[in-house]
Amino acid sequence: MIGYPAHFRCTMFHGWARFVPADENVQAYLDNEIDVEIAHESISCLRTGADRQHQIVPLAEAFSYHVRGEVKMISHHSEPMGNRTTYVVAGDAAFTLSLADLGNLRPSEGDAVEFDVHGLSLWDESI
């Protein structure tokens, strides 16, 4: 899968990410407003009880951001047993956190959370 470094801008924040387009015509995306999915390579410094003000701030490391948001939904999966996906929303950005991302922390729906996201990718989900 091919990705391109891209500067992006949205309501909540702007910065750099790897953009992974659905097709090979990357020029068609330049200066256009499109809806994308957010992915990441890793999460660090996750904690609950953070300030409830949603915020996404670029960090010094490329493709990395400090996120302050709210757990909107938790999805429990049957396989493997005990697995779960936690959906955190910060403004108009939604982050999907796996059990591995959470470490020992198990936030509940409605909890304020704060974490650093590394290796941010934007995916064009063309159906």
Rank of each mutant, 00 (worst) to 15 (best):
E70V: 12
T86Q: 01
E37F: 04
S121D: 09
S121A: 13
E79D: 06
V113W: 02
D35F: 13
D101V: 05
D116H: 02
D111I: 08
A60P: 13
L59T: 04
P107N: 12
L30H: 02
N32Y: 06
W123F: 10
T48N: 08
T48Q: 14
S108R: 14
I127Y: 10
V57G: 13
G103C: 12
C45T: 00
I127G: 15
N104Q: 12
F95N: 09
I56H: 03
G103M: 03
I56D: 09
G110I: 01
E125V: 14
H66L: 05
W123S: 10
H54T: 07
V36D: 00
I43T: 06
I127C: 15
S64W: 08
S108Q: 15
E125G: 14
A90E: 04
I127E: 15
F115V: 04
T86K: 03
S78E: 11
Q53Y: 04
G110R: 00
M81I: 02
L105R: 05
D35I: 04
P80G: 05
E70N: 13
Y29R: 08
L122F: 01
M81V: 08
E125F: 10
S108V: 09
P80C: 06
R84M: 15
G91S: 01
R47V: 06
I38Q: 07
L102C: 11
A28S: 00
V36F: 07
R106L: 10
L59Y: 00
R47S: 12
G119L: 12
